[in-house]
């Protein structure tokens, strides 16, 4: 399969497919980050995670229109405002859902899965009723359009670079929050030993709610970033949910390092295979490989040792 290409072309192909893989990697990391907090730390399966993501995307869509109509002069920075609003909207909805639904089901993980699936159906239909069934896109500010030419054969889209940069920042922020802040310390304490954590005066219910809210809020930001590279529809979230769960499980639930490693390997394998095979076969082979590895090593790539 390599014979038809010259050496230089092959390098360019690998570089560009590799870069496409990096963008996919950023999306996976952004999506899976919220899930890794909710599933990895709390053990809650949130099937509506994709819908929280889409909520962030729709908030960005609305913000872009508001800026366009009300203050076109500031349009070039609307995205940063949208990101904050998306975080707040998804996070608030997440905390509400935790209060209304999830907290009653902590001891029944399989039931949580079904209930959040129901929630995802309701949210999808709500989006469809409010925004219509068609996909919507946002207008990207001028500075984010176009590409950077690294060599004459390798070009890199700016919006992709932006999303990647954003991913690094959000990832670093979450890491700092989890491992450097008081809240993060409390959260890890609750995960490791709930009873002891309560014993030293940590309000575990509040921590649960905040953790769930944070996970959903990050999903909202991810959705906001998502609008920079693709359009948004009511069911767009559901298309990613399986990939995202696999990324989290494959990496080893609860491990941020594992999350990066698994998102990286899955996205790179998929985008490089995509060039040589059809898109669907690339996806099938990647997913099959992941499932196969998970069957051999169910704990994932990296694992945390927990006292249950």
């Amino acid at each position: 399969m390599f014979a038809d290409y010259s050496m230089g072309e092959l390098t360019a192909i690998f570089a560009m497919q590799g870069f496409a893989g990096l963008i996919l990697f950023s999306i996976f990391v952004l999506m899976a980050l919220g899930l890794a907090i909710i599933f990895g730390q709390m053990g809650v399966i949130n099937m509506a995670h994709g819908e929280f993501l889409i909520l962030g995307a729709y908030v960005t869509y609305i913000t872009s229109h508001v800026f366009q109509d009300v203050m076109p002069g500031l349009f070039s920075i609307y995205f940063f405002v949208a990101m904050i609003l998306a975080f707040i909207a998804s996070g608030a909805l997440g905390m509400f859902v935790e209060w209304a639904l999830i907290r009653h089901l902590y001891k029944r993980p399989l039931d949580t899965l079904l209930a959040t699936w129901g929630l995802s159906l309701i949210l999808q239909q709500a989006y469809r009723s409010i925004f219509g069934a068609r996909e919507v896109g946002v207008t990207i500010p001028d500075w984010m359009m176009g590409s950077v030419y690294l060599t004459d054969m390798i070009e890199v889209p700016i919006n992709g670079l932006f999303v990647m940069g954003l991913t690094v920042i959000i990832f670093a922020a979450v890491g700092a929050l989890m491992f450097r802040s008081t809240w993060g310390r409390s959260m890890r304490a609750v995960v490791q030993n709930r009873t002891m954590a309560e014993g030293v005066g940590i309000d575990s219910e509040k921590i649960d709610r905040l953790t769930f809210g944070l996970g959903c809020g990050i999903a909202g930001v991810a959705g906001s970033a998502f609008t920079m590279i693709g359009s948004t529809g009511p069911t767009a979230g559901q298309q990613y949910i399986v990939d995202t769960f696999l990324v989290v499980v494959f990496g080893g639930a609860g491990s941020l390092l594992g999350l990066v490693a698994s998102a990286f390997s899955i996205s790179q394998a998929q985008s490089i295979l995509e060039f040589f095979l059809s898109g669907s076969m690339a996806k099938v082979l990647t997913l099959l490989a992941v499932v196969g590895i998970l069957m051999l090593r169910p704990q994932g790539l990296f694992t945390l040792k927990l006292r249950k």
Partner: peptide, 27 residues
């Protein structure tokens, strides 16, 4: 045999459903 159960089993079987669908549509 590897004592995988609960939510992990649910997620992996769900992934299999996704794989088979993609495979059928693609081929």
């Amino acid at each position: 045999r590897r004592r995988v159960g609960g939510v992990y089993f649910a997620i992996i079987t769900q992934a299999l459903a996704a794989i088979l669908t993609i495979l059928i549509i693609g081929q």
